[in-house]
Design a protein around this nucleic acid. Structure first.
Lengths: 334, 334
DNA sequence: CGCAACAATGAACACGTTTTCACGACTCGT
DNA sequence: ACGAGTCGTGAAAACGTGTTCATTGTTGCG
């Protein structure tokens, strides 16, 4: 510790860097100035060792390449960075599931919190691997409700970030119906994905409310290629559909391309398409996708807010935040 | 430290987790078994404090959303994870530059190495902020040569990862020429981007070698929207071009969409388009882009190899790795 | 059998912080 | 003017490892 050039104890240096400690202002200023000169910053490792806080947040994703996730990571990194945290990124190996190995591995890096963009973590795994020290934020839709939630590891805690999907879906269905669509299909995401299931449930409910027949469901896995292939299958055998609702935007791109290039169908004249997310690529002219928008940036800010509050006050009652969705109308409907 | 249930000293526990220490095998096994039962892993913070190694690698990017970068981060995370490292992700604030603030901030987290997908870091900043303890791997093209390089912070070290761009560009130009293209344009990336400059230089050299006129250069910034607008400008005033070479794939998408939707031009019949990178989206049917491919996964593996070697042997002479590019032919040429 | 080399082991220390505790120097209210 | 409270300060302890050093038990070689 070289900063004792200021003729003060190491304790004083420590205090100089911690706002809420009592230290004579002029002395603090002196220490900070000298630290600046010497290019000194308090060692995070030592700090983490004694405080138990690493000031990092573990983020687990299945696939960084997916536009939706990369946008989420981007926003998350920015938000965390602004709060003095670092993003510790980890990837699940194959599918969207997460095994105990990865969780243990990540836990080894002592993240203060964990955000898992992964849906099917066995609760047993979760409970066993994590001490209560690390608040886990798993993100998935609440059962039977048209919202996604954020659930703490400890079942008694229950911080929630609710994304109300119903608004956007209602607007989309109304628009489709307005343009005369009758046979509406739903391209699911991964079959076990709770997000996809929740969207399907809400869609069914909304369509029933408006007197429409049940949707034709065909299954994808959130990727372009699978969506493309699934669309080819659907339209080759039956009479297809006159509107397709995809569980995510990338899937919608696959649907659009399959319709155009495999069957020569026009979008939106012959088939209308609606996506979900509103990712960066959705406004590209080749797709110009009408889609149900979740404001990712805002959602991530809310997430970070939740984490920070919980970290500052571990014993506080559950926090709840709610986000709305809305339809962004572009060229694939109408 | 609860693992003394095994009736051994803490030192023995430490040794049990470190392969190259002398400890009776049966005792090591016992300790590891008990550790497993107790769900114990050595504390990284303490480990980092004493060893000076955090087992994490800082990664700096301007924009995680960009497909190219997200693919790179994805591959990097996988590779690092396999080697027992974590990825510490940071974002530059606005453009592709990096200010001292961010570098200092990141340094506070003690990454063992830094990979910056950022090109214009002032050497002064670099030198001042980093101790020699952290090998910096900045990635940019070597001056006047048709390759990108990886340069260590210390100028005496000089580990290099060379990406030979010439191969792919030659194949692309030959193909364009074979289809009768004469007026070839180049859409640059960010004007100060060394990668873009290197590609332009190589393109010029190759075209001169083949007796073609100088390329028409118009400038973008690697994004879709800017590429779209720049293409509109170019084709509105002059007579345009009969082939466009874009500095990256996303830019090529913007070019294609502008040609089709603003001018009703057909790709490839009226204008041929070649990109650079071969990202995931390039095979999507709406674009089906012919592009110069860099094997990102292989490039990242090489990068990680370099870092690991340097970490194991800080004094070793410079390591050099070389990667080739090749043309992937799809639908936008021919 | 004797001596040297070597494997196995634990005690003590080091790493760079934050936190707790104790002490003196003030300020304030009466 | 005196005690109570507050502020500023540093000494010492603590955080959980890896490392060095000395000690003991063991093997190998002549």
């Amino acid at each position: 510790m070289v900063a004792e050039r200021a003729k003060v104890s190491r304790v004083a240096v420590s205090r100089a860097f911690n706002p809420h400690t009592s230290l004579k202002p002029e002395k603090r200023a002196l220490i900070l100035r000298i630290a600046q000169e010497l290019n000194y910053t308090p060692d995070r490792a030592a700090r983490a060792l004694v405080s138990g806080r690493s000031h990092s947040v573990g983020v687990i994703v299945p696939d960084v390449c997916s536009p939706r996730e990369s946008q989420e990571i981007d926003a998350l990194t920015t938000a965390l960075q602004n709060e003095g945290f670092a993003t510790l990124l980890f990837k699940t190996q194959t599918d969207m599931s997460m095994d105990e190995t990865l969780l243990t591995y990540m836990k080894g890096f002592n993240p203060d919190a964990v955000i898992a963009f992964v849906e099917n973590i066995p609760p047993a795994t979760l409970a066993r691997v994590l001490d209560q020290a690390v608040p886990i934020y798993v993100h998935y839709p609440l059962e039977g409700q048209p919202e996604t939630g954020v659930l703490a590891a400890d079942k008694t805690l229950h911080d929630q970030l609710n994304v109300m999907q119903r608004n956007g879906i209602e607007q989309a269905v109304a628009l489709l119906q307005g343009y005369g669509a009758r046979r509406i299909a739903y391209l699911s995401g991964l079959p076990r994905s709770l997000a996809s299931v929740a969207r399907e449930q809400t869609l069914r409910a909304v369509m029933a409310d408006r007197g429409l027949d049940e949707p034709i469901v065909f299954s994808g896995d959130f990727t372009y290629d699978t969506a493309y292939a699934a669309t080819v299958d659907l339209f080759r055998v039956g009479q297809g559909a006159d509107a397709v609702f995809a569980a995510n935007d990338v899937g919608a791109f696959g649907v659009i391309d399959a319709l155009r290039h495999e069957f020569g169908l026009r979008v939106p004249q012959d088939v209308k398409v609606v996506g979900f997310d509103d990712i960066e690529q959705s406004h590209w002219k080749s797709y110009s996708l009408t889609t149900v928008k979740i404001d990712l940036a805002e959602r991530v800010r809310a997430l970070v807010r939740l984490i920070l509050r919980r970290l500052n006050d571990p014993g506080a009652p559950a926090f709840v935040e709610t986000l709305q969705t809305r339809l962004v109308v572009r060229g694939t409907v109408g």
